[in-house]
Design a protein around this nucleic acid. Structure first.
Length: 428
RNA sequence: UCCUCGGUAGCUCAAUGGUAGAGCAACCGGCUGUUAACCGGUUGGUUGCAGGUUCAAGUCCUGCCCGGGGAGCCA
């Protein structure tokens, strides 16, 4: 019997294998708040209605002790869940030692040093399940559209983008690096399979210390042959809408009840998402009082300012080529711009997707490589893709943690990841 | 790397340069419907580390360590 199915067992005797997460007592009645991984329930132990030894056992239960409780399910409005278990028998599997986490507030440092215990708190229980639903929504969505999942290597010989800092490891006496993107490998795979995606961990050794950054995060990277920028953005819109739809369907109640998320902000998202070119965005920003220079790019403050103008996610397109990676195809109408698009989440959650059309012409790609000072050796195999049946293609990368943070309304992406790795934390 | 704020009981925080304290947790006791239960009591401290100023330092100064928030870069 699982707590989530409790309503089907009213007036029946059931046995629940659970943990204590709180206990309140009124002298002759103990109120045990229990959880079994799938839900939460209040159980009562009433003096006189159970053997004295069972009552004494309940009296001595500590926070987070593991128990097996047997009793009759009752519908009762006085219970926080509407149902409660009238315990008749109780077995203690393990009496927990003094539990470090309390019902009251804690600091960030303490919580993440105790991440292995913090995972048990109700907010984290909701977040982790929303995260799993988002992952499933992504995979279902792409699979239904004919994508093939192709895993990219995590150990790589060199940087895919050449700019960000990489984690270096020893590979039998040579240097290898933890992947920061599977994109280049995806580009090879689409020449066989048409539409592919990889989904796995990526690593950035950037010394970033903000609410939007962690050093290890999961990224969904679809890559599509013959997709131009517009088709690419439409795919993103449908993906985001599918994710929101699934999350609201499965977790709407918990998001609202436990995380206090304003669901109207999510259910109000509709396509098409507004699109601004980089030039238009900079003009709009100066109209909003920003003094950001054209070449300075969009800072976090500017991204927030822009996204606050809309209820929907917002595409910024056609970034100057100096600001973007070497493989991005330039706009034939204005070669100083790239065929690129960043998707900014509403409410200041920042960039959740980065997309571009990839340069499919070998000569133009080589020009860009030189401009970006990337060594030619590392790209030999990649250049082959432009020699043997090159086609226009595009793709994007979506940061899972940021999407989870946005949908759950979290203050920091570390809350959206089971075991966050940050600049200052790799334990536990 | 830079800017900024902080480090005092297990946790969250107080304490004009002058006797280190509260709430929660834990422990003991009370309560037959609790909702972060409540009420009474008890226990709990090398004030991050090392120096310095002073009659006197948690408090002022210097250096270091650790953490939070932010910048740049990015998803």
């Amino acid at each position: 019997m699982q707590i989530k199915d409790i309503s089907r067992y009213v007036d029946q005797e059931v046995t629940i294998r659970a943990w204590m997460y709180n206990k309140r007592s009124s002298g002759s009645i103990h109120f045990l708040q229990i959880r079994d991984g799938g839900g939460r329930l209040q159980a009562t132990v009433v003096k006189g209605e159970v053997p004295d030894e069972v009552f004494e056992l309940a009296d001595g239960l500590t926070m987070e002790s593991s128990i097996i409780a047997t009793g009759v399910v009752r519908e009762d409005k006085r219970s926080p869940m509407g149902f409660e278990l009238a315990i008749s028998d109780l077995e203690v599997v393990q009496m927990a030692e003094e539990y470090p986490l309390q019902k009251k507030e804690h600091g960030v440092d303490f919580l993440f040093t105790n991440r292995h215990l913090y995972l048990r708190s109700e907010s984290q229980w909701v977040i982790l399940r929303v995260r799993a639903t988002i992952i499933k929504a992504c995979i279902d969505f792409l699979d239904q559209r004919g994508f093939v999942r192709i895993d990219s290597p995590i150990l790589t010989p060199t940087s895919c983008e050449g700019t960000s800092t990489l984690f270096e490891t020893d590979y039998f006496g040579e240097s290898a690096y933890l992947s920061q993107s599977g994109q280049l490998y995806n580009e090879a795979a689409i020449m066989s399979l048409g539409k592919v995606y990889c989904f796995g961990p990526t690593f950035r050794a950037e010394k970033s210390k903000t609410r939007r950054h962690i050093t290890e995060f999961w990224m969904l990277e679809p890559e599509m042959a013959y997709y131009d920028l517009e088709a690419n953005m439409e795919l993103q819109e449908d993906l985001i809408l599918h994710i929101i739809d699934q999350v609201l369907k499965v977790h709407g109640e918990e998001l609202c009840g436990v995380l206090k998320r304003d669901l109207n902000k999510l259910s109000g998202v509709v396509k098409p998402f507004p699109r601004l070119t980089y030039d238009e965005a900079m003009k709009k920003l100066s109209g909003l009082g920003s003094e950001r220079g054209y070449d300075e790019g969009l800072g976090a403050e500017e991204e927030t300012l822009l996204s606050q103008q809309y209820d929907n996610p917002l595409f910024i397109t056609h970034f100057p080529m100096q600001q973007k990676a070497f493989y991005m195809k330039r706009d034939s109408d204005n070669p100083s711009l790239t065929l690129s698009a960043d998707l900014l989440a509403p409410e200041g959650y920042g960039e959740i997707v980065g997309a571009s059309v990839r340069e499919d012409d070998l000569k133009l790609l080589e020009e860009m490589r030189k401009l970006h000072n990337i060594p030619a050796e590392s790209l030999a195999w990649y250049y082959d893709l432009r020699r043997f049946g090159s086609v226009p293609h595009s793709g994007f990368g979506m940061g899972l943690a940021r999407v989870v943070a946005w949908l759950c309304g979290l203050h920091h992406v570390r809350e959206a990841v089971p075991w966050p790795r940050t600049l200052t934390r790799i334990y536990p």
